[in-house]
Amino acid sequence: MKNWVRSNKGFIVFLALLGIFRTAVADWNPIPSASMHPNLLEGDVVFVNRLAFDLKVPLTDVILTRLGEPRRGDVVTFSSPADGTRLIKRIIALPGDKVEMRNGLIVINGKAASYASLGQQYETLPQGSATPALLLSERYGDAQHEIQLLPYVDAVRNFKPRVVPANQYMVLGDNRDNSQDSRYIGMVSRELLIGRAERVLVSADIRGNWMPRTERFGKSLR
């Protein structure tokens, strides 16, 4: 064993440095589920900027210094407050915001987000059946992005006004009726944020023929 370590120490150092880089500076995150349709697809691999918000001690959630502030509309990766699973969602409400949902539509600080129809498509559910999906543009202030609604799927579409606590954020999936987000797991504290997802690095059709989706390579997220 000692001889193996000695003969491969360069490779071991490389792996250690790569691990530190991924846990402190930048990372990549595969998309395994449909919770961020239509903007992220299963088989996308996104680039995550771990220095967007905080500099942390590698391999921990300990914040050394703040480098930037999360913004409404940011797509972020984080550790679930429910079970520690890494998730990716969109920040909808910031600390101090009063937020509610009415029939699937967001109201923040008494002002409703604006919505515009982008058409309809079909979403394939895990059991293999297809259901209509409504594509909408959602805008609140400077934050604008596409979302998807599944009107025939049972989901939480209403909650009473609640104030986002200090140092916490409300996150929702863009696929609003098929996402385990703050409606189910609660608010996400800042120290659980991993970083901001900024673009798709590579993509492959993992639910179909596994061919590369080159048109998605380098796609910016917003």
Rank of each mutant, 00 (worst) to 15 (best):
S35E: 01
S179C: 08
V57E: 06
D181F: 01
V75K: 01
W28S: 13
F14N: 06
Y184V: 01
R196T: 01
T23E: 13
R71C: 10
V202D: 03
L201N: 06
A130K: 15
R213H: 04
L40H: 05
M211R: 12
N39I: 05
N167T: 00
R6Q: 10
V45N: 07
N29G: 10
K98H: 01
T85I: 05
T65S: 14
F53A: 11
K160S: 14
R196K: 11
L136N: 09
A130D: 11
I147T: 11
R199K: 15
S79T: 03
P95H: 10
Q180A: 09
A16K: 06
E198Y: 07
N49P: 05
P161N: 09
M211D: 12
M1E: 12
A112M: 15
L64V: 06
G128K: 09
R157A: 02
P32M: 08
I106R: 02
P38G: 06
T131V: 15
R72E: 00
I106S: 00
P212F: 02
V200K: 10
V153S: 00
L17H: 08
R207H: 10
K219L: 02
G19N: 12
A133S: 14
R50K: 15
R71N: 13
F47S: 08
L149T: 12
R72K: 02
I63F: 10
D61E: 15
S33F: 07
D181L: 01
E191T: 11
G104K: 07
S35G: 04
L201W: 08
I206W: 03
G96V: 03
I91Q: 03
P165T: 00
A166Y: 10
G128Q: 07
R207G: 10
R71Q: 15
S7K: 11
Y140N: 10
L118C: 11
K2M: 15
R176T: 01
T214E: 02
S129E: 13
Y184S: 07
H145S: 11
D61K: 11
P70C: 03
G19H: 04
D177P: 07
R66D: 09
R222W: 11
I91N: 01
Q127F: 12
Y140T: 03
M1W: 10
Q127H: 14
